[in-house]
């Protein structure tokens, strides 16, 4: 390291300095938090002190290998943001009622400005996200990147994959068209085959004995509130673990000691 004990010239004096003279400097410091004494620490600050980029590595490799990750994690996350943004727009038009849901979507397609393209992006983005998350999982497996110390990151990832699937599945019903209705009927009937608790689980999912208003409301609440909350929490944990476990797996073996 070499510079371990070297004081930064910007370090605050022990007595706190002059109140008036040091005011601009003190304000500046209080905003950007520049009072470190270590060189490595101050060099890492543009990343570690900024909320929006602090999930990125402080010092990435000089020559990143795209062929290693194929960008699949970034693609999954980006698709989630795109799908969340378009979903939020559609929230302004959608009504989770068996009488209005379908007509609202027909309206969205036909009369709302950019309604059709927003819905298309949401739907295809969601399909893309299922594929991207799955491929990301395959990438991590085939590169052995789940091995210690990254076990728990993989476990969170498995849950993220499941949340993605349930997300898609609950969204599927919201259009309230024939395919949605009968697809959900088939899907929920499978849950009924669970030993002992089968009927209870099925009733809990449907809010009744057949797909109806209660089912639509339940799937809607899951889709627009519960699952987003769960997804964001798990994503935070996932990214936090990636940084804490040392970033990409290939950096440990070859580039770090």
């Amino acid at each position: 390291m070499g510079t371990t004990d070297k004081k930064s010239k910007n370090a605050a004096p022990k007595n706190g300095g002059h109140v008036i003279m040091d005011l601009p400097k003190n304000i500046y410091r209080s905003v950007i938090r520049e009072k470190t004494t270590l060189r490595d620490q101050s060099e890492s600050e543009p990343v570690s002190d900024n909320f929006f980029v602090h999930v990125l590595p402080v010092s990435p490799l000089e020559h990143p290998r795209f062929g290693y990750t194929l960008g699949l994690g970034v693609i999954s996350m980006s698709l989630f943001l795109i799908v969340a943004a378009t979903g939020m727009l559609m929230l302004f038009y959608y009504v989770p009622s068996t009488e209005q849901a379908y007509e609202r979507i027909v309206d969205l397609n036909a009369t709302v400005s950019f309604g059709r393209i927003v819905r298309n992006i949401h739907r295809w983005g969601a399909h893309g996200m299922v594929a991207a998350v799955f491929l990301h999982m395959c990438r991590v497996f085939f590169t052995g990147a789940y091995k210690p110390p990254r076990e728990f990151s993989w476990v969170i990832g498995v849950f993220l994959f499941l949340v993605t699937l349930v997300f898609s599945y609950t969204g599927y019903l919201l259009t309230w068209d024939q395919l949605a209705y009968w697809g959900t009927t088939v899907g929920t009937s499978i849950a009924g085959y669970t030993p002992i608790l089968g009927d209870t689980i099925q009733f809990l999912m449907l809010g009744g004995t057949t797909v109806g208003q209660e089912t639509l409301l339940r799937f809607y609440v899951l889709h627009v509130f519960v699952l987003p909350l769960l997804m964001v929490t798990l994503l935070g944990l996932h990214f936090w673990r990636i940084r804490k476990d040392g970033g990409l797996a290939y950096q440990n073996g070859n580039e770090r000691d």
């Binding site: 298309n120 309230w176 057949t210």
Partner: peptide, 9 residues
Amino acid sequence: APLGAKANP
């Protein structure tokens, strides 16, 4: 994005 006929139980 696909959209079929309205759901008919």
